[in-house]
């Protein structure tokens, strides 16, 4: 091969990926860098944004307990959502996997179907069912005399966890499902032939093998829940804020863009650290199952 041809073939991958790369840099990296920079700018009620380099916003976040509470709530909700999806999603995937062909595809559709519906619509459904005195379920239960006051759902962390878990469930089920597909189809029979009962088979044979799937599903659900906006905005509104809705408020209501940028940056950094860290841990712990 001639030098020119060699050079050309070395440049080809770059040339071919250039459009996508430019889009990536243009719509993701540049705005991200600008957001980080923005978080170091100053802001005043009357002077607006001043492009200087100060740590005011970061200092405020670090010292004002309001922000600590906000982030703590965000991660608490994300963790509880993750636990709930894991507890419900893993058995769901396992049962689904054991179903007969026709039922299996039907229920897989039922589980994945909601992904086609907007998150807003799905969350509004919860609001319609449980929203204060007018929520359908609350109304029914109250008129039936089962409860005297409406079940508190809107503006509660419980409500947010339940609604988020509902939204995130498909990701967990799919992730566990993928792990189940990698199982040897005879593995349960093998354990049974050695004398293991159904509980032992699930606990000793199935669980350890689908654990990586549960954990990678957990990472997805956790990061999506911690940065979720629509569901917390609808269930929590401005009364029960999480990091994402807080940043939104700073940007669009208070117009304190630098503070909003600092909140957003912190959320991003924290999430990246948590996700990368736990991923590394999982991969090391489950090296044998992953290979």
């Amino acid at each position: 091969m001639s030098m020119a041809a060699e050079e050309r073939s070395a440049r080809a991958p770059w040339a071919l990926t250039a459009p996508a790369l430019m889009l990536f840099v243009g719509v993701l990296l540049i705005p991200l860098a600008m957001t980080v920079m923005l978080s170091f700018h100053d802001w005043g009620q009357y002077k607006g944004i001043e492009p200087v380099f100060i740590l005011k916003n970061w200092h405020e976040i670090a010292t004002d307990p309001y922000y600590a509470e906000m982030f703590w709530r965000t991660f608490r909700i994300a963790i509880l959502t993750t636990l709930l999806t894991a507890l419900l999603g893993a058995p769901e995937a396992y049962i689904l996997n054991r179903m007969d062909g026709r039922w299996k595809s039907f229920f897989l559709l039922v589980i994945l179907g909601p992904l086609l519906i907007s998150v807003v619509a799905r969350t509004l459904g919860w609001a319609l069912l449980f929203g204060g005195n007018n929520g359908l379920v609350n109304k029914l239960l109250m008129s039936a005399g089962v409860i005297r006051s409406p079940i508190p759902f809107m503006f509660t962390e419980t409500g947010m966890v339940v609604a988020l878990a509902h939204v995130m469930m498909p990701f967990m089920v799919l992730s566990v499902w993928a792990a189940l597909q990698r199982l040897d189809p005879q593995i349960e029979n093998a354990a049974m032939s050695l004398g293991a009962g159904p509980v032992t088979i699930i606990r000793r044979i199935i669980m350890p093998q689908i654990m990586p799937g549960v954990l990678s599903g957990a990472i997805i659900v956790f990061s999506l829940s911690a940065s979720a906006f629509a569901t917390p905005a609808i269930i929590g509104g401005r009364r029960l804020k999480v990091a994402a809705t807080l940043a939104y408020d700073e940007f669009l209501n208070t117009l304190n863009w630098p503070l909003g940028a600092a909140v957003a940056t912190l959320l991003l950094v924290a999430l990246v650290l948590i996700v990368v860290g736990s991923n590394a841990l999982i991969e090391r712990r489950y090296a044998e199952v992953f290979r």
């Binding site: 040897d184 005879q186 029979n189 093998a190 032939s193 004398g195 489950y286």
Partner: peptide, 19 residues
């Protein structure tokens, strides 16, 4: 019940417990 038959089985895919 298969778990109580006490037979030894080697499967075509071995079906070893990978973990």
């Amino acid at each position: 019940h298969p778990a109580k038959r006490g037979l030894g089985i080697v499967f075509q895919s071995y079906a070893l417990f990978p973990h």
